[in-house]
Design a binder for these strands. Structure first.
Lengths: 207, 207
DNA sequence: GCGGCATTTGACCATTTGGTCAAATTCATA
DNA sequence: TATGAATTTGACCAAATGGTCAAATGCCGC
């Protein structure tokens, strides 16, 4: 009955539903606190069906975290779209803010994973991430040498960017509690986004 | 045999040992992932003994998080030691950095608690924290009115401070991986501390 | 509409979990 | 040193957990 173009394979559709549920449960309960039963219930499938698509809880978790990793890489590339520090940093910080906004659950899982000592992504930290930081630090140091930025340690700058942007995902609940119980609407978020960019960039540009 | 002045009560000493172990396990495994058996083993006591001092896992967790809350309040007070924005902000950010340094595990638990929607500390968020933010925001707005700070939304400033400082606790493992596998020594941390303060303050002070 | 593959699912299992209990031991102090 | 309270702990338990399995059902090209 379904047109071939519209119908996605049963497998793809079910994996999507399970991954979506898993993301929510892992974000809220952590890896240890999440149960496959809770994920299955949330996805609306019997637990045995979940295990049909993802043999173990760890495999499911890995699949979830891989999506975040992909998004991380995409955001990272926005740093390289300009050689002007103001522009490059603004773009990068903005992309990170957007990521926190569009993937809050994934961002939380990422943070949680790192807090636990990165049992699943240690390899990524040691290779891809370390390389990225190293090479972009060189660029930042060049900007400093050219008198465009105040003399700072680039790594601590990246930590600051990661922390601040991630916070809008990690602490979404805390923030909405403080903001009278409502989570940031689009215009408030846009304001926060601009302010984060401005504060960091203004704090860095040499004068 | 023990002198009364030296000897602490058995109860106090055992509670301390258990709390210390609990802090480590909760930080690494999250509330859901932590097991009372693991905490007891780490504390070097039988599980039944742990339950003698802390009847439930939740009660133990509450005791751990209460210590963090106390430390949070102490750091918060450092904001009020000066009416000069540069000085007040520097002190406050510095105190937060020191907190992340001295209580990394507690800070991680705090972050984890908030990520999960603050099931244990929602009341604190709604009352003490919301009030603190509200009243300190008024001060910041006054500074802005006096032309001392760029026009910003104070709440987003606090989010930025919390995020950046907490990050040095939350992401300690990620950071040490990037820094060639060694965690920040005192002098490197001091550098990071100064840079965080400088970047934020410079990004805010009106010019 | 048939044959074979993909999918579904209730029942089941071994292990782990938070927590209990009662008996034994240690401690403080009168 | 006698006594009652505080502490210790192995054994135990019901519930929950991650995961399995085989039988049933659905799907799709021929």
């Amino acid at each position: 009955m379904n047109k071939p173009l519209v119908k996605v394979s049963i497998r793809a559709e079910n994996e999507r539903m399970i991954l979506e549920a898993a993301e929510a449960v892992f974000a809220e309960q952590g890896f240890g606190g999440a149960t496959t039963a809770a994920i299955a219930t949330r996805a609306g499938v019997p637990k045995a069906n979940l295990h049909y698509y993802f043999p173990t809880k760890a495999a499911l978790y890995r699949a979830v975290i891989e999506r975040v990793l992909t998004a991380w890489l995409a955001a990272a590339s926005s740093f390289d779209q300009s050689d002007d520090p103001r522009e490059a940093l603004s773009r990068y910080i903005g992309a990170k803010m957007d990521l926190a906004r569009s993937m809050p659950l994934g961002s939380q899982i990422w943070a949680s994973e790192i807090m636990r000592g990165a049992p699943f992504i240690q390899d990524f930290l040691e290779t891809t991430l370390a390389d990225w930081v190293e090479s972009r630090s060189r660029i930042v140091r060049r900007w400093i040498g050219e008198g465009k930025l105040r003399p700072i340690e680039p790594r601590y700058l990246f930590y600051m960017i990661w922390a601040t942007t991630q916070h809008y995902a990690n602490a979404a609940h805390e923030i909405s509690t403080i903001e009278n119980g409502n989570s940031l609407d689009d215009s408030k978020f846009e304001l926060a986004r601009r302010q984060v960019i401005e504060t960091i960039v203004e704090g860095l540009i040499a004068r």
